[in-house]
Design a protein around this nucleic acid. Sequence first.
DNA 1: TAGTGGTCTAGACCACTGA
DNA 2: CAGTGGTCTAGACCACTAG
Lengths: 253, 253
Amino acid sequence: MGTTQLESVPEPKYWHLRTVLSEALDSEFSVGEILPNERELAARFGVARATLRQALEQLELEGRLQRRRGVGTTVAPPRVGVAVGTEQHAWPGAADDAWHPVDCVQAAPPAAVADALETDRDQPVHTVRRSRVSQGQPVAAELLYIPASSMPGLTAIDAPSGTARARAVLRELQHLELEGQEQAVELGSARADDAKELDRLPGAPVLVVTTRFIAEGRTAALSVATYRADTCRLTFGDSGGVEIHHRPERQAS
Amino acid sequence: MGTTQLESVPEPKYWHLRTVLSEALDSEFSVGEILPNERELAARFGVARATLRQALEQLELEGRLQRRRGVGTTVAPPRVGVAVGTEQHAWPGAADDAWHPVDCVQAAPPAAVADALETDRDQPVHTVRRSRVSQGQPVAAELLYIPASSMPGLTAIDAPSGTARARAVLRELQHLELEGQEQAVELGSARADDAKELDRLPGAPVLVVTTRFIAEGRTAALSVATYRADTCRLTFGDSGGVEIHHRPERQAS
DNA sequence: TAGTGGTCTAGACCACTGA
DNA sequence: CAGTGGTCTAGACCACTAG
């Protein structure tokens, strides 16, 4: 009788814990505040540390918490909205581009990319690496694939690789007429190199945005961008910065 | 010396396992095939079951595996592309709509929704529940919020709730002129009711698509749709069905 | 060096499925 | 009913951070 309620169909402990912690975050903690450590929290709730961690993982997935090894668990700020799809289509590297180039090499692409580009697998492809920063934090890493056949004017550029090469490739891209673009979003996990760039551990959840740029009836470029799923909200549509932040509802009783 | 290689900076076992299993899935298994059970796999790889499960979780997150309690672990088909953003904006419930209505009630909305709708928190809102099916499988559940003030003509409808009511609300919506829409995508975890409708466990990863429909300069409707993140690839742009499926690259050595 | 989160183990029991 | 994945425990050690 002293307990709140008997659960005829008991929900898992970690799920209940998630709800309790979520409400505590709303009412008793403010952004950036540091939580008690995992061993202490587990003891306080009377569960094993693994169970407590399962609840924390959920909350981190939902962007409510941020955990860093050697430091602690902190309350995360609301997700930052990053504009991904715009009404006025534009090539990567255009004036208002939110990305900045990092590197560029010319090599044979992975098989999956060659398929999407509709080119032979041994045909060389310019691969531009770019990164995107928002509010001081890295939010996305991108690999931009451009078939060499799309850019005949670039064969004689002197810079063989590096940032200068990347800029040259992007500059060349602007000369083509962009006819349209198609995008897809799916859930993925960060590969080792992306994870490093995003300041996360390998396997961290990411939103993978694949963009196909169409010119002259063909796929002129393919962008594969991985966004931090914990901190980002991808926005599409006319204006990107509108304040629609959906926080999951309370659990129904 | 018999081992393949000494790892100077050893990656986690579960991550290495994920890679090994991923390659095995590519080469030795076909879609729908059932894997050995977890205890057997763990023994075969010489790890604890929890570690093996960590690897399986990764692969399930990436849409490579499907696990069902009491049944087993099967190889998942490639993710199905579902069109989310279209060039020609249209109201929910239009002729070519992929959704079908389930239910409708009129009640005060959650606080977060009221804020997004820019209405008072105690103002009544029509809440339409819809579901979306693709290739025989439920892929998304939606809550569609429409302020009663947007639809003055609906006060006298006789059906108080249920599917008939939902259809009536959607029909009424078509009479307004749609001026634009804004969308956002973020990662979330399925609430209990959504999870049930999506045939998943609570907490399963979902892609939450928030759409704001604008008419007469105001927010006339707000849709919060949760898509199964494991099985869905959300497509935006001119044509939704194009075959760009990005499979994560092999891990660099 | 002390304290944090990340990984891993070897068990146990439960909830669910299908024969 | 037997077999599956899902939950949970109580430990251990490791990698990383910061004072």
